[in-house]
Design a protein around this nucleic acid. Sequence first.
DNA 1: GACCGAAACGAACGTTCGTACTATTTTAGC
DNA 2: GCTAAAATAGTACGAACGTTCGTTTCGGTC
Lengths: 223, 223
Amino acid sequence: MADPGRAAKASHARQTTASRKRPAVPALKGERTRQSILDRAVDLASLEGLEGLTIGRLAEELKMSKSGLFAHFGSKEELQIATVDAASQRYIQEIFQAAILQPRGFPRLLAICEAWLSYIRRRVFPGGCFFAAASFEFDSRPGPVHDRIRKLMDDWIGALERAIRMAQDEGHLRPEADPPQLAFELNSLFFGANFAYHLRHDKQALEKAQKAVDSRLNGLRVG
Amino acid sequence: MADPGRAAKASHARQTTASRKRPAVPALKGERTRQSILDRAVDLASLEGLEGLTIGRLAEELKMSKSGLFAHFGSKEELQIATVDAASQRYIQEIFQAAILQPRGFPRLLAICEAWLSYIRRRVFPGGCFFAAASFEFDSRPGPVHDRIRKLMDDWIGALERAIRMAQDEGHLRPEADPPQLAFELNSLFFGANFAYHLRHDKQALEKAQKAVDSRLNGLRVG
DNA sequence: GACCGAAACGAACGTTCGTACTATTTTAGC
DNA sequence: GCTAAAATAGTACGAACGTTCGTTTCGGTC
């Protein structure tokens, strides 16, 4: 570790720039393996945390060599960032895919909330919401991984606020409702549901959250 | 690690039973050092997580030897459990000490909520709420540490529900309010505030939570 | 001041971590 | 089918991990 800059070099230099676009359906074998690594890494990290995620353990589960796996990323930090990005794709897919089909305004906002709770119920990540866990794990660990998580969470809250504003614009939601305030409250209920459901094994947690969301949104609904 | 049972033995056999009462003001030197170790351990674990807490690092910060520190606990797991217990004492102190002075019913319930937000503002734990972090870190890691955290969180939610019921018994809060439901909502707002405040650096997070708490409680208040 | 258990120490153990270098196999394009 | 490139494996390294051991220092009691 005398020269950390050397981590990004040789055959995996291209992978150290996270901005580089990757094909949705990978043509090269390397991309396919990389994707399968990340799939497993996301699950593992949701269970053990991003720090608890270990290259040796991951390689073992995938029946490949540590060094072969390592070469895909060049450093553990790059693996963590790639894992966060992969989790984000899954997250967006699960939360927004169905919701975007709903008509804009109140129905879409409600669909997002329901998708979130359903995403916990369906155990999209085996260890509970990946980002709730990652947020708490990295909230006081500065560095690129922290920054990435933070950006994604800012985006998520931003998307929630936008959905709220859209419902106002459509005339479905009271204009005096404060989007950042409401987004904060909804997100709190989601994280709280995840906490109660997974740590406390409160089987009614999702129903409680649903009820709270419904009554809060209905209270702001017009008509 | 061939015989994990051997961890609890010899001079620290007494420390392996967490139920053993410890004096509030320690007479023996050993107890005093132990307390100072735990004080630092709690802070460190709130920043780095309970797994990220390492004996070597802790010993270094306290300027004592790894082995000397280790002897106080007998295993890392025992250290983690002791750290959780120490954090719980601090938590209870900070949340309930002031609130218990308020008259039972609505004032006390509100005082608990305000104490919680103030506990985040005053940075009682440098890395944010210890138990929010620990809950997410251990929600899918079975074992004694998980069990201890879970029990404490159950106790916390239970205390919240009791405060709500008390407010109903005093006639301050509508009887149709559902204590588990309301406790879930309040706790969600607390954890959500911690998340927004620490990870997203949302300086208004605590005000948002306060506003949400106030409007929810006032909506259920009688008179 | 001598004694003795408690407390702290320093050195070492075996293991696992992330990472580096090199060699071998597999793949993709001609 | 050949060949260069890409992907994977193999091996080794230093550092840090939790833990053990034998020894030394400390603190309270006669």
